[in-house]
Structure formats: structure tokens, C-alpha cells
Amino acid sequence: MTPPHKHMSEEKELVCYCFSYSRQEIREDAVTHGRSTIMERIMAESKAGGCNCAARNPKSR
């Protein structure tokens, strides 16, 4: 359950800038599948060299 003080924009805030996953999408994915399939996809993409957090993330990491 999302706490009432959390704003919708905060929920849509991107966590993964490489593949555009927001906090809400990560939560919905984990609730739907019982595990984080997003993480599995991110890991697979990272192995394939598709992840580039240093360039895409505003915090450069």
C-alpha cells in the first residue's frame, strides 16, 4: 500500500534511466509476478552491454 503522503509524480519518478522503469512499474511488476522480473531483464541487458547508467542517469552512476 502506498503511503498517502507520496505524490503521484514521485511514484512515476524514474529509477532506471537506461530502460525507463519507474518506481510504480517496479512495484507493479513485483506484485504481479511475485518477484522482480524487471531486475532479471535489467541484468540480462547489462550482460548484453545495453546498460549505461554513467551516461544516462543524472547522478552519473
Binding site: V15, C16, Y21, R23, I26, S36, I38, M39, M43, S46
Partner: peptide
């Protein structure tokens, strides 16, 4: 262990799980 900021939150969920 290799992980970046993209996988930090899903990884945390996985660990707690």
C-alpha cells in the same frame, strides 16, 4: 558483484524477498 543504479531497487526487493 556487478550492479548499477538501474538494478539497485529491484536488487533490494530481491534480497528482502
Amino acid at each position: 558483484t556487478p550492479f548499477c543504479s538501474c538494478s539497485a531497487v529491484p536488487l533490494f526487493i530481491g534480497f528482502v524477498q
